[in-house]
Amino acid sequence: MNHQTDLATRFHALHHDGLLLLANASDAGSARLIESLGASAIATTSAGVAWSHGYPDGDVLPVRRLVATVADIARAIRVPLTVDAEGGYSDDPVAVAETVAGLIDVGAVGINLEDGGADPELLCAKIEHIKRASARLGVALYLNARTDVYLRGLAPPERRVEETLARAARYRAAGADGLFVPGLTDEASVRTIAAEAGMPLNLLARSALPGADELQRWGVRRLSAGSDIAQSMYARMAALAAGFLRDGDCKPLSAEAMAYSQVNALFQDR
C-alpha cells in the first residue's frame, strides 16, 4: 500500500468513527499549524485559499493556483488532505474531473463538490466523471457532495429535509461518499437527514449548533469550521495593522504572538 492509498483509507475511516473535526486551512502554513495541534486530517477552505491569492471566493480562483496550493499543503503535512473544490471551476463534467485528477496527482485524497444553484443532475454528472478519474488513478477519493438547499434556501422551509434527502439519494447513486449540508442546524432535521441520507453527514460550524459530543449523538459524522478561522484571522490582522498604522505603537504586535522559533520549527524537516 503506497502512502496516498494509506491516507485515503485513513480518511474514509475517519467518517465512521466518532465525529471528524476539520479546522479548515487556507495555505500550507496554516495547514501545518493545524496539523501540529493534533488534527487527524486537513481540509481547505475555498474562501481562505482564494483570499490568500487575492481572489474572491466563488469559482474564480485559477485552477493552476489551486493545484499549486494543494501541492504545497500536501508537502507540509503528513495527515489526509481534502480540498474544497467549490463547483469544480467549470460546468463541464469532463473538465471538472481533469481538475480533480490534478488535485489527486499532488496529494489530495478527498474533495468537497457543491451543487450551488445548479440543477442537481449537473453535480451527478460531475461526481460520476470524478469517480471514474480517481479509479483510473488508483486512489479511493472521498467525495463529499455539498448541497446548498439550506444555505441558499433552495426549497421552502417545510420541504428542505425532503429536498435534501432527494438530492442525497441522487448524489449517492452517482458515487458520492458523504453529504455536506451547510446551514442545517435544527436537531430534528439533522437527526432525520443523518439517519436517512445513507452517507456520513457533514455540517458547517454555526453558533446555533451544540458541541461535538451532542452532534455525534444527533448522528453527525463531520463538522467543518469553513471560512470562520480565516475570517477571524483577517479580523485580527486588520486590528493589529490599523493600530500600528494609526499611531506606530509596537506593543500590541507581539502581545499575543507565537514565538518566532516556535513558528519556524513547524516547518523543519518538511
Rank of each mutant, 00 (worst) to 15 (best):
173 A>E: 13
102 G>F: 09
42 I>G: 01
212 A>S: 14
269 D>Y: 10
50 A>T: 06
30 S>G: 08
125 A>K: 15
122 L>K: 08
169 A>R: 11
74 A>H: 09
158 E>I: 09
156 P>Q: 08
197 A>R: 05
199 M>T: 06
199 M>L: 15
86 E>W: 13
49 V>M: 12
25 A>M: 06
24 N>R: 09
265 A>F: 03
79 V>M: 06
194 A>D: 09
38 G>D: 06
254 S>I: 08
55 Y>N: 04
16 H>A: 11
85 A>C: 14
160 R>I: 14
165 L>M: 04
28 A>T: 03
39 A>W: 00
12 H>N: 09
163 E>A: 15
49 V>I: 15
89 Y>M: 08
114 E>K: 10
120 P>R: 01
4 Q>C: 08
108 A>R: 07
170 R>K: 14
180 F>W: 08
129 H>S: 14
4 Q>H: 11
127 I>G: 06
17 D>V: 04
50 A>L: 05
83 V>W: 09
216 Q>A: 14
238 A>W: 00
237 M>V: 09
250 C>S: 06
230 A>V: 12
157 P>G: 12
116 G>C: 11
155 A>W: 04
114 E>H: 08
112 N>Y: 14
108 A>S: 12
141 L>I: 12
153 G>W: 04
4 Q>D: 02
115 D>N: 14
135 A>L: 04
157 P>E: 14
2 N>Y: 03
112 N>H: 15
141 L>Q: 03
203 L>Q: 11
99 T>E: 01
205 A>I: 01
256 E>H: 11
124 C>N: 04
236 R>T: 10
53 H>W: 07
161 V>S: 05
149 V>D: 01
54 G>F: 02
262 Q>K: 13
133 A>F: 12
168 A>M: 12
30 S>L: 12
